[in-house]
Design a binder for these strands. Structure first.
Lengths: 340, 340
DNA sequence: CTGTTAGCGCCTTCAC
DNA sequence: GTGAAGGCGCTAACAG
């Protein structure tokens, strides 16, 4: 049920003016005599009138709402991104409609259809890869769309992202400069064009540039979650030759790996150094705190939303891909090793 | 900008029927001949028509949307609650409008006004205390409202919550039964009727029932955040006489406290045992994993939303306060101490 | 400056 | 069974 119905008409009657005048007052139209404006305002107060955004939307053909499609709000990486989006949105008097997609193409479709019917003005799509089906779905809906923390291989949509390869490079280079030469990697999925492949690339390049041979068998693939980090680390710890450092493609895996190390009775960073990726809170709260690459999650959301707002206002947006700066945060999970 | 405009009228024309008939088909009205139904469906397909939820809402006086007012989506406790809400909402074809309130009464007002104008059908209000201003705001808006993880002292609104006093009691009783007699508490704010006061009460009752004297100076007050846990623990560690166990009113503070203990060179649980509260992920991922009280966050959200749905459908809801079950999760941060 | 009117897209009587 | 018409609350164009 919607609210009690005090309409613009009631206000008009009460103030002895036409509905047009009330509308003008509401929209701060300049051409209203101060005196009548006051009369109208009074009536509005008296009747406790508030405008009906639905009716307004119907007329204006804009809803001041944007859809936010996200894998899972309860996954540690995203809440901060959403917060960034929401802050910018509410500054512009927009609201967001959250859709949890769970990396499920079917849910994606359903949500997209829903957003279409709810007539959102734009969409922010987070983290999942953009495949052919999605791309055509996006094109059909004919509203501005911004990708955050993912990119469109075909480059048809604007995106906000960090330079994953570069970030991974810096993380691993840091370990190399610390003297580590035996560095394993707990990577993401092999076929993830987003957080998977580029981070492995960065890892390899850092090794090469530091004249360390890349050993493919030291690259393990997890799913960014705690358990996979833990399990893979257990695996690593069984080997004859242990690495002196491990680079994980997510903080959650890094923490899983760290727990496995500690559980086994080794010391961090005494025996093994660890670097994570993302900069979520757990990397800071873990003991020892984990060195990591910080992704500017809040800014990614905020920047994506600002971009979308520009597009909604019809402003020209030149850049097709916004690369935000990441940051290597040095904490207590890494030590320098002596060369011998 | 809203979508391209293919309206019910276009469909009607294309199918050679009246708009009424199209509407009936859309709403699965029984009294439509199969043959015309097919004709209409065809036209819908051909034109790629999709209904305009805005227009529908205007007519129907319901938007199928609910407002969710939350302190801060980027705070660890809430995302899972929101996920629960969203899952139930989308099952009913509702969507949610997220508002971050930051425990700021002014933002609260602004958001409430916004939700009013957007004509949400109901509101879920999370975690903040319900004061007089808010209560009157809620009453004016005249739509169903459900409180989650908080309650209304005046009992005018339905709520979904756990038994905080009981949960705290169980946590501390567990420590007592393990043989601890020197148990400090890192509590929440003194005046928080929600997660503050009841948890202290539970702590005290557990001590009393285990014939342990309550020492007020062993009750410290933090703000549920990491730093306050860390700082307070440092304070505690400076004392002559150390407690053998610490009960924190949030996992985040528990982890902060644990870090301080480890940083100081003590062992957990060897020297000091720790119990947290909430059951957020960090309590599980920390090393050693932290014993805690799990709040069923997802269910709290889902249950709150189901309650709201019932109210929206006009069903009678007898219970005024739903108490969900918490759970003591025993992990590796507590040890038994020998009586002497 | 301000009142009146015609829709925005949809649903719902009310006749036929 | 189905078409036509009225109206949900609002804005914008057109007169005055």
């Amino acid at each position: 049920m919607m609210n009690k119905i005090v309409t613009i008409k009631d206000v008009a009657k009460k103030a002895n003016v036409g509905v047009g005048t009330v509308s003008r007052v509401l929209n701060h139209h300049p051409s209203v005599k101060e005196k009548t404006r006051l009369k109208v305002m009074e009536a509005i107060q008296a009747l406790e009138y508030n405008p009906n955004a639905i009716a307004r939307s119907l007329k204006a053909k804009e809803t001041r709402s944007v859809g936010v499609m996200i894998p899972d709000i309860s996954s540690a990486f995203f809440p901060e991104v959403v917060r960034g989006i929401e802050d910018v949105a509410s500054a512009y008097k927009y609201h967001i409609i959250l859709c949890n997609i769970d990396l499920d193409r079917e849910k994606e479709k359903v949500s997209l259809q829903m957003l279409k019917e709810k007539k959102v003005d734009g969409i922010i799509f987070i983290s999942n890869t953009v495949d052919e089906g999605l791309r055509s779905g996006f094109k059909k809906i004919e509203i501005p769309i911004v990708l955050v923390s993912t990119r469109d291989p075909a480059n048809e949509f604007k995106s906000v992202i960090i330079d994953n390869a570069m970030a991974a490079y810096e993380a691993v280079d840091y370990l190399c400069k610390l003297g580590h030469r035996e560095i394993a990697m707990i990577a993401g999925q092999k076929d993830d064009p987003n957080a998977g492949i580029p981070r492995v690339e960065g890892y390899k390049r850092a090794l090469r540039e530091n004249h360390i041979q890349v050993k493919e068998e030291w690259i393990y693939h997890g799913d960014y979650r705690y358990k996979s980090g833990y399990d893979i680390m257990q695996e690593i710890l069984k080997k004859e030759k242990l690495p002196t450092a491990v680079f994980a493609a997510s903080d959650t895996m890094a923490v899983g790996a760290a727990s496995a190390v500690l559980h086994r009775g080794y010391h961090i960073p005494g025996h093994i150094s660890i670097v994570g990726f993302d900069g979520i809170e757990v990397s800071e709260y873990f003991y020892p705190s984990i060195t990591t690459i910080r992704q500017p999650r809040y800014d990614m959301g905020a920047c994506g939303m600002r971009l979308l707002m520009k597009m909604l206002k019809g402003e020209n947006v030149e850049e097709n891909e916004v690369i935000l700066k990441h940051e290597l945060i040095k904490r207590n999970s890494c030590r320098a090793v002596r060369g011998d």
